[in-house]
């Protein structure tokens, strides 16, 4: 009996300790300021950066990706966010439609829980053939003040920010009224100025790494 009681006691203690730990581990993180840096404004220069390609691990820089292009569309994306996933087809289409016109689409995944293997599998499953960079520690999301997925920053080869906002204004393709990114890309590739350089992006918040403080 003693051995059984002792084992039962151990079992209860083990459960209790683990349960308490689980409560703390699962507890929401303290509120952190969502705005982590001064948001770049239209016309500001985005400094060059380098991030590893999620598929290959090879470092890709903004400068290299911009070389010979009219603009680079940096799109913060997620593998799990339903809002971002609602745009997979549209992102693939934009990359396809404008790739030959001098536009480089680049995905950036800054979510702490989405690993390169997840990103690679997700890209293959959704025919996302453009480079997707892994922003470990959300350094570039912080630098650009990116908040949600999907969120777009359109940058000229000299680093100038020329559009910031959503891909369009509705998640259901049939409901879309404003094709913001498409219009901006048409302007850039047509040598015209962009009529609407910014709009509000709405989506899943970027899951940032816990702050050191």
């Amino acid at each position: 009996m003693r051995r059984t009681s002792a084992a039962a006691l151990c079992a209860v203690l083990l459960f209790s300790v683990t349960a308490v730990a689980a409560v703390y581990l699962n507890a929401p993180t303290a509120s952190r300021a969502e705005v982590t840096a001064a948001a770049p404004k239209i016309g500001d220069k985005i400094a060059d950066f380098s991030l590893p390609d999620a598929m290959t691990g090879t470092a890709r820089s903004l400068k290299e990706l911009s070389a010979g292009k009219k603009a680079v569309a940096l799109i913060f994306i997620s593998t799990q966010c339903p809002v971002s996933n609602a745009y997979n087809g549209r992102m693939a289409q934009i990359a396809s439609d404008f790739g030959s016109k001098g536009i480089q689409v680049v995905g950036i995944n800054s979510n702490r829980s989405e690993m390169p293997a997840d990103i690679t599998a997700h890209a293959k499953a959704n025919n996302l053939t453009f480079p997707i960079l892994k922003d470990t520690g959300n350094k570039i999301a912080d630098r650009l003040d990116a908040q949600v997925t999907p969120e777009v920053y359109l940058v000229k080869p000299n680093g100038e920010l020329i559009f910031h906002g959503p891909i369009d204004d509705r998640q259901q393709v049939s409901d879309v009224q404003h094709t913001y990114l498409h219009d901006a890309l048409n302007a850039v590739t047509g040598g015209k100025s962009i009529a609407v350089t910014g709009a509000r992006a709405f989506g899943c918040s970027i899951k940032r790494a816990p702050s050191a403080s």
Partner: peptide, 16 residues
Amino acid sequence: ALAATAIGVILAAAAI
């Protein structure tokens, strides 16, 4: 004893 320990482990796993 083994059964009691196993229950504890299962409960702990459920907790985490």
